Simulated scan of single mutants.
Amino acid sequence: MTAELSTSTPKTAAPDPEPDRVDLRDVCIVHGRGERAVVAVEGVDLTVRPREIVSIVGHSGCGKSTLLRSLAGLLPHASVQGSLSILGRTPDEARRSGLLSMVFQDAVLAPWRTVEGNIRLPLQVARGRQRRPGKTISEQLEVVGLGGYEKRYPKQLSGGQRQRVSLARALMMEPRVLLMDEPFGALDEITRDEMHTELLRIWETTDASIVVVTHSIPEAVFLSDRIVVMAAHPGRIVDVVDVGFARPRSNDLKDTPEFARIAHRIRTALEDNR
């Protein structure tokens, strides 16, 4: 009997999924020592997946900005306990290598530098220690909608434009994780709505995962894939809400019943955990 030859195509193993970009395990953050010690954050577990947008919402003083700054390695005088990693590295290592960047509520632009000069700062600070960026400054400005603004100074820009410059600067080294602390909190409501859609448009051109802290429930629902709700005393996670809206998103989404349902759930969690 002659053996039959198999004509089936060998199965190719599926590629391993990319690991989480951010991984927090039982994180506790304490300010001060002894009798003056204050537990700002306690028992936080959180992961952020590749190209995911996660918002953290909560009342003032719940520890959300403290948690974000711990991810950026910007709490030198606090005691940070538990496991906290960015792409398998410490926050300091991730920031120094250009894998991590941060945008603050204030644009924090040097007034004596032009737009081009402000965006160039990460390149000058790195001095070859980080990988080379994939875009030029002019290309990055085109991405954020400020093409041709290279020679202007911060005082010649609107609030929304200054935040675009800040965002362009943060994205210059093409970070894998972008942290945003109330990035649109100082803007008027109309400009804020515009920046919501602009941020999502810009994010589509990157490989970044985003973690954003905000007091605005509509902002969190519109931007996010998941929303982390925090309560205070001590700061802790009381709810995690999945947002299933398809992308791209438009501001019309904010008028839909499902948008209102998600916002109501977040508002109820905040009220129940004051």
Rank of each mutant, 00 (worst) to 15 (best):
E194S: 14
H196A: 05
T205P: 05
T191Q: 06
E189K: 12
T206M: 00
V211R: 01
M172H: 06
E204Y: 03
D181P: 08
W203K: 07
D207S: 12
M173Q: 14
T205G: 02
D181N: 03
T206C: 11
L179M: 01
P175V: 07
V177H: 09
L171Q: 04
M180D: 07
S209D: 02
E174G: 09
L187H: 02
D193T: 08
T197W: 05
E194D: 13
A208D: 00
E182R: 10
D193Q: 15
I210N: 03
D207V: 13
L187N: 02
P183T: 11
R201C: 01
R201G: 09
V211M: 14
A186K: 12
R201E: 07
E194G: 14
S209A: 15
P175C: 05
D188G: 00
P175I: 13
W203G: 01
I190C: 01
M173F: 10
D207G: 11
E198V: 02
A186D: 14
T206L: 03
E182S: 08
L200G: 09
V213Q: 06
V212Y: 10
A170N: 10
L187P: 01
E174D: 15
E204Q: 12
L187A: 01
D193G: 14
V177C: 12
L179H: 07
E189Q: 13
G185D: 08
I190L: 15
A170Y: 08
